[in-house]
Simulated scan of single mutants.
Amino acid sequence: MLGLSGKTESFQLGHIPKRSTLSDANKNRKVDFFEEVYNKLLHQYSSVLSDSRIENVVNKQVKIVDSTTISLFKDILSCVGRKSKEGKSKGGIKVHTVINADEIVPNLVWFSPAVTHDHNFLQKLKCDDNTVYVFDKGYNDYKAFQHFTDHKTGFVTRLKDNALHQEIDDLEIPEHIHNGVLTDKIIEVEVKKDKEVSKLKLRKITFYDRENKRKFEFLTNLFDLRADLIAGFYKKDGK
């Protein structure tokens, strides 16, 4: 506003309000107002935020889920921190973000204490048959995977090293599939809810990334997409 101070007469603004005045005014405004403005702008300009459209390839919206911890002002935030092995509290706020893979701005941001486990954020996600969520193995939660599957919502993540599962079938890897795909299997995991235990069928893809010289095991409920495309979703995630 200071940069436009010479043009204020054109819209009948007698003086530039002080920053503290704006801050006091915003204190009384509900967050819903800013959320609505942001989402309307995102909806209007989403088509020009990217030069490549994954949605056009898979006919679904691919959304990347990730988190980061803000550890500044530890003395102030110590009450929300996780207890370390030494018994000291590690202050911080965890920020969870959902970004459409075709865009460069988030469409959902959620704050929680640093002590809150990542998988709790999955409850905040909207489920529909037009969406695929991609997230790291820190979000692994079989109950959430069952919920996604029941609501025809896709997901791609990495399998935890100590994950208990049973391999029940080997899928054929066609010749035209990227040769980084080592195996493509159907597995079963146990979903424990209350006192009941049920079985959930998922797909486990083992992929060797030559660029990083690493082997990855991906877990997904997408059975109709190519194995190398599913690995590509995770690469898009930037992990």
Rank of each mutant, 00 (worst) to 15 (best):
M1V: 08
L2G: 08
G3C: 10
G3W: 00
L4H: 02
L4D: 04
G6H: 03
K7V: 03
T8M: 13
E9S: 15
S10H: 11
S10C: 05
Q12V: 06
L13T: 01
H15F: 12
H15M: 08
K18H: 11
R19H: 13
S20P: 01
A25V: 15
K27L: 14
K30W: 02
K30D: 14
D32S: 10
D32Q: 10
F33N: 06
F33T: 09
F33C: 02
E36L: 11
E36D: 11
N39P: 01
Q44D: 09
Y45H: 12
S47Y: 14
L49H: 05
L49V: 00
S52K: 15
I54T: 05
N56F: 08
V58T: 14
K60H: 07
K60I: 00
Q61P: 01
K63M: 13
V65F: 03
T68F: 13
T68G: 12
T68R: 10
I70A: 10
S71T: 14
K74Y: 00
K74Q: 12
L77F: 15
S78T: 10
S84L: 13
E86Q: 13
K88Q: 12
K88N: 15
G91Y: 00
G91A: 04
G91L: 02
G92Y: 07
G92M: 07
I93R: 03
I93D: 00
T97E: 04
I104F: 13
V105K: 11
P106C: 06
F111T: 12
P113H: 01
T116D: 03
T116W: 06
H119R: 12
L122G: 00
Q123S: 08
K124L: 01
L125I: 05
L125R: 00
K126Y: 01
K126D: 06
K126A: 04
T131R: 10
V134R: 01
K137R: 15
K137D: 08
G138D: 14
G138A: 15
Y139A: 05
F148D: 04
T149H: 07
D150Y: 09
H151D: 05
H151P: 08
T153F: 05
F155H: 07
T157G: 08
D161N: 13
D161C: 10
N162W: 09
N162S: 14
Q166C: 12
E167S: 14
D169L: 10
E172N: 09
E172K: 13
P174D: 07
H178M: 02
N179R: 13
N179A: 07
G180M: 09
L182M: 15
L182H: 09
L182K: 14
I186P: 00
I187K: 10
I187A: 07
K192I: 13
K192L: 09
L200Y: 04
L202I: 06
L202H: 00
L202M: 06
K204M: 11
F207W: 04
Y208F: 15
D209R: 01
R210P: 08
E211S: 14
K213T: 14
R214K: 15
R214E: 12
K215I: 12
F216Y: 15
E217C: 12
T220A: 09
D224Y: 07
L225I: 10
R226D: 13
A227I: 03
D228E: 10
L229R: 11
G232L: 06
F233E: 00
D237T: 08
G238R: 11
